[in-house]
Design a protein around this nucleic acid. Structure first.
Lengths: 335, 335
DNA sequence: AGAGATCAAGTAAACGTTTACTTGATTTAT
DNA sequence: ATAAATCAAGTAAACGTTTACTTGATCTCT
């Protein structure tokens, strides 16, 4: 790749003039301008972001750290963030920690070395230590989906408590009294909130509900739902409904039910959480609590970019609404 | 973030010594070394990749350009590439062109500005023009999955022809004679190869087969399969089997069949292509032609990195084997 | 003991930009 | 007509590294 110096020589001007043409900073006479443009075209010149970033002390790059990219919810989120950032002429460095604290830590290091202007992070939650270097460095940060106590940063969540509450109410209103909850213990704050919402619905309803929780920490969630459901559904007193704390888990559950020749929703109701695209195309379609995934990404990106222009440091927590999507996988239990 | 100069001052040595400690290049006496280490720890110093890249004329960054990240096949591929690169201490700049030539072009520009050391690309195929700047710049490149005529670069494919051939033979051996093929026309080279494999199986079999192709170019593939299947399955003479050229399409097809109260594989056989994780968990599980997605990513990354160390420029084309995964969605047709 | 070799550590140039400052020509005002 | 103001374009410093080259002390050998 050519350099500015070479362009300057080809156009027979100084490098300052070339820079001014590129960035439209300062007046350049028309004839010089065309000479510079022609030289750039001829040399297929594109300015070095490297040199520019070094000089400007700004990289226009944002670190995006996700716990697990091979999961529809997170890949959609990352994708939404990248898209929003790109539209504002920022790059995204998308990384997957794979629920591994060490990997997370090493990506944080990488962000610092790359001198990213900010980060959007969904913490693994393995340890709040891993993100501390970013805080100490004063790197602007937005946390999405999961939160970490002791970090006062911008945050974007969906309303997990109210979402789970709605979902549970739906099951209770259908008449279910024996219900299992299957979730993941991986960094459990949003999971805890969902359990909290479930508890609230139970408390409100009162009485005679038999409920059991199964929290596992397998990484492959299809399988996790499958394995747990197999176990739960082959016992003596099986539940009439299962609340899966993630859609991918629900898919695994439905698969297990099919294998056991149980028909959904006739023999078993299943409700999920997230509303990944697949949920509208599973068989049967999945009743679920929709998170506004795309919007979460957009809001997170917006919040971060806004914090760049703000001169005072403000910390915001934005909670987005969830929505119950009633589809085919839930019905009243057989009596 | 502190700079090397500040570390040098804190340790009371020259910046050259600091650099030598960091990179373990050249002998530094033990006492100086600990002083430098302590200074770095105290200042939480991490070297600037920016400055280092500028000076070294190497960024250890690879551009990864994918046509559509919100698709399991591609996101898995991107993920595999990132993982392989990271293990070799290279960063990945993952971008999704969303099957849009302009977006692809603008990411190519970004790669050049960022001075990436190489690229791994699955072209949208909208125009070979978009990738030309990379070629002209001499950026090392590996193409995966889709190919572009006129580009002599390293390539990694799976054997689409043979895969589709195997898939089609499977259907024919089961006794299907009326078969529909549903695929996407989006950059169609791999799709064409799959059709070629299908044709070969037909030719070999001879005679009485009724086959129809439906190639669409919708971006949301679940819906595409759904819409097309709805149309195909409600006609007078419906096929007894559908070959979906991608698993995501097959999912949509199965959903349409369910809505039409057709049982799979009893009333309709469906076979897919790709073997995304979901295929083992759909109901019924999906017979499909497996591409070694993860391996494709690893091989592509390896090929690129190898080309860095090679002094002579060689061009390799690696074709990986596909494998027929027979699951529940295919059976002999009712007679 | 003294010359040459060895080598630890420092100095400074270079990577490719941006931009404050300088320069010298042209315009404006008296 | 001349001094001041304006302004287009150029010069050079700075961003934070790496590394060729320099320096000066210590070691080795006769």
């Amino acid at each position: 790749m050519a350099t500015m110096k070479q362009v300057a020589k080809a156009a027979n001007v100084s490098i300052a003039t070339v820079s001014r043409v590129i960035n439209k900073t300062g007046y350049v006479s028309p004839d010089l301008e065309v000479r510079v443009q022609e030289a750039m075209d001829k040399l297929a010149y594109l300015p070095s972001s490297l040199a520019r970033s070094l000089r400007m002390q700004e990289t226009r790059t944002i670190g995006v750290l996700i716990p697990q990219l091979n999961q529809p919810f997170f890949s959609t989120l990352a994708f939404a963030i990248e898209k929003s950032l790109f539209a504002q002429d920022y790059r995204a460095l998308i990384c997957s920690a794979e629920e591994d604290g060490d990997k997370e830590r090493s990506y944080v290091d990488m962000f610092l070395r790359q001198r990213v202007d900010g980060v959007v992070v969904v913490p693994t939650g393995h340890s709040s230590q891993t993100l501390l270097p970013l805080m100490n460095n004063g790197t602007p940060m937005v946390m999405v989906d999961r939160y970490l106590k002791g970090f006062t940063v911008n945050q974007v969540f969906s309303d997990n408590v109210s979402g789970a509450y709605q979902g549970m109410r739906h099951l209770l209103e259908l008449g279910h009294r024996r219900i299992s909850v299957i979730g993941t213990s991986h960094y459990s704050e949003p999971m805890n909130d969902r359990l909290k919402g479930i508890d609230r619905a139970l408390a409100e309803h009162g009485g005679d509900i038999v409920i059991e929780h199964f929290m596992s920490d397998t990484l492959q969630h299809f399988e996790m739902g499958y394995d747990t459901a197999k176990q739960v559904l082959t016992r003596d007193s099986r539940p009439t409904a299962i609340f899966a704390l993630m859609d991918v888990i629900a898919i695994g559950i439905m698969h297990a039910a099919a294998e056991l020749h149980m028909s959904i929703p006739h023999d078993l109701s299943v409700i999920g959480f997230d509303d990944i695209p697949l949920s509208s195309f599973s068989i049967p379609t999945l009743t679920t609590v929709a998170q506004p995934i795309y919007e979460m990404g957009e809001v997170a990106a917006g919040l971060l970019l806004k914090s760049f222009s703000d001169d005072v440091v403000t910390v915001e927590t934005i909670t987005l609404d969830t929505q119950l999507m009633i589809r085919q996988s839930t019905a009243s239990p057989q009596t």
